[in-house]
Write a protein that binds this DNA or RNA. Structure first.
Lengths: 244, 244
DNA sequence: GAGTGGTCTAGACCACTTC
DNA sequence: AAGTGGTCTAGACCACTCG
């Protein structure tokens, strides 16, 4: 059928259903930065014309991306990127007390090109990585000392970007500058004595138990694209998670 | 339209879209125990005939319940209840070490009808509650001491059920015996000294820091139907969570 | 072979937003 | 008024399961 020749993109697709091919194509174009969060994506009718598919099939593709949190549809006006929500979604924790939605301040401490431990290298699928250290605070109290590992091939250049260009959140930066959309993540929370360096940074006594969050974050295609470990003082620690 | 008169159920529905009305009706019939996990639900064509809706609309209703984790569709054979997966989904934590999918053993310690604190009463929307204490262990080591609060009107009788009828998991029991399907939950993980009673049960020193999980669980209609607080020794604690 | 869900079409009418 | 997404229809053909 003529369908695939329209929908197909250079790197993707095999004998997947049309709506999946279209989903992938749209996700790729989003990642490529083709639309900002204010310019609407092509309408259903435009995509129908572009792809030769029917409206229902086009709808299904777009709805998938809505369900994944990438897009947002507004009746009467169009379909848009969704900058806001997905970082709120992935940053809906570290509520100090009951207060939840305030974003902690970030300060970069170090950025180097380095080789991670075997376990991390295996998760990210490479030994050439960028290592970022970062401190997060809220209302003058230290919340978290983070160590972040990124595969060099996806994030080359982030190690020399001027600090002011980093916002308080990394995931929007990943998308804007590197076309990497974080679609999901797995967190593991545990408690362990903090190593000396980290205890110092957090302003707590060495070997005081600290909260530990290990996170692996995944791109839309399922590839692990970030690993981080964060330590925080256990007394002000609160991790919130929605299940189901 | 004739549509609503077919779809409508005694307690539900107003001017919602037909597919939502049908979703609610199916969810209600599932909760009422109308089908086991081996008998298929009515097929798309049967529901089309029953409701007077078109296949596409019926599909949409069923797909919603699949997305919510209640149903499972098998091409060629039918649509079925999904006992298995949702408790695995909600019990994907407390992995000791890297081992994740083993279910801890449960022992009931106490069950009473009682009045919860104001905060819990407000969450559950009632002051007449059932309080359950429960200990969970794995491979001879204590994992968790739980205190569970349930609204009496939904769970009347659970306080006198013979212990053997409780499995290691409560959520399947809620569904089987009380028609309450846990659709989602919010967990909060923190870290605090354990109260004396709990420290004793866990076999740790009083005032030793312990991991604390507070959970509010919600039925499919969004009502909070369970609140629990669990304490565990912090050294063997590991909480895993999938985001996005 | 009959029945199931999976994909897809080519429309329709509606509610809403924007100009 | 024109364009958008939201709902819904009445079909089609396919892949799969089961007896």
């Amino acid at each position: 059928m003529a369908r695939q020749t329209h929908v197909q993109t250079s790197t993707t697709d095999t004998r997947l259903p049309a709506y999946m091919q279209l989903r992938d194509m749209l996700a790729a174009r989003v990642a490529r930065g083709e639309w900002s969060s204010e310019t609407p994506l092509p309408s259903e009718n435009q995509l129908k014309a572009e792809t030769g598919l029917s409206v229902g099939t086009v709808r299904k593709s777009m709805q998938m991306l809505v369900d994944e949190g990438l897009l947002e549809r507004r009746q009467g006006s169009g379909t848009f990127l969704r900058k806001r929500a997905f970082d709120a979604t992935l940053f809906r924790f570290f509520a100090v007390g009951t207060d939840s939605d305030t974003i902690p301040k970030s300060r970069l401490v170090a950025r180097t090109i380095a080789q991670p431990h075997a376990a991390v290298a295996s998760i990210l699928g490479t030994t050439k990585c960028i290592r970022i250290e970062r401190l997060r605070s809220h209302a003058d109290s230290m919340l978290l000392a983070e160590e972040i590992w990124l595969p060099y091939d996806r994030f080359a250049g982030i190690e020399t970007m001027p600090e002011p260009e980093f916002g308080p959140l990394l995931y929007p930066l990943y998308l804007d500058r590197f076309g990497v959309f974080i679609a999901s993540a797995v967190d593991e929370v545990s408690f362990a004595p903090a190593p000396a360096v980290i205890a110092t940074r957090l302003g707590i006594a060495t070997d005081t138990p600290a909260a530990v969050i290990e996170r692996t974050a995944f791109a839309a295609d399922g590839a692990a694209v970030e690993w981080r470990i964060a330590h925080g003082p256990s007394n002000r620690f609160r991790y919130r998670s929605r299940l189901g």
